[in-house]
């Protein structure tokens, strides 16, 4: 069965950490590649995923005990150790550790041939994924609309419903 008859998909993207930038862009780009018509509604911290400058996005190991933490380099035995459960939350209070965790995740991703976030994002745009930024949270957090990438529409919850009126793939991330 092909997806032609019912091909609309929407995603609500609410998270703005580096790691959580991936699921919306991966699912959206794959969806359009498979002939779906995809809209992502970015709200609250998800707005960060639409910024021109994404260099400030970080992973947060604090309060994230499920995050595996393995070194992407070094001897084999060392790469096997999962530091995630071994390091106390207190460790991640030390300045620079969040930067370090982000750096290691980027290295690990590159080693595994995972696309860069910006690459997935621009592929979404190339395939005509519609990006909507929640106007209310743009105002609320004092974002400057000039800081967002081109091609973003600014609208509210009502427009989300209009986008989600058809189709049966509607995901909250």
């Amino acid at each position: 069965m092909t997806a032609k008859e019912n091909n609309k998909m929407t995603i609500i993207a609410t998270k703005g950490t580096f790691d959580w930038a991936f699921p919306p862009f991966i699912i959206a780009s794959t969806g359009v590649a498979m002939d779906k018509e995809v809209t992502i509604f970015f709200t609250f911290y998800g707005l960060n995923l639409l910024l021109k400058d994404t260099s400030k996005l970080r992973v947060s190991p604090i309060g994230n005990p499920s995050m595996p933490m393995k070194l992407p380099f070094g001897p084999k035995w060392l790469q096997k150790i999962d530091f995630g459960p071994k390091l106390p939350n207190l460790f991640w209070q030390i300045p620079g550790t969040e930067w370090l965790a982000t750096y290691l995740m980027k290295k690990t991703m590159a080693k595994h041939g995972v696309a860069k976030m910006e690459e997935l994002r621009s592929m979404c745009q190339e395939f005509d994924v519609k990006f909507i930024a929640c106007d209310m949270t743009v105002d609320l957090f004092g974002y400057d609309k000039a800081d967002f990438i081109d091609g973003v529409e600014f609208a509210g919850a009502a427009m989300y419903f209009d986008e989600a009126a058809s189709g049966d793939h509607h995901l909250y991330m």
Binding site: I26, A33, V114, L120, F127
Partner: peptide, 13 residues
């Protein structure tokens, strides 16, 4: 070669 999900699909498309 060397690319991970979802890149092979996107490049195929």
């Amino acid at each position: 070669s060397g690319l991970n999900c979802p890149l092979p699909i996107l490049k195929t498309k």
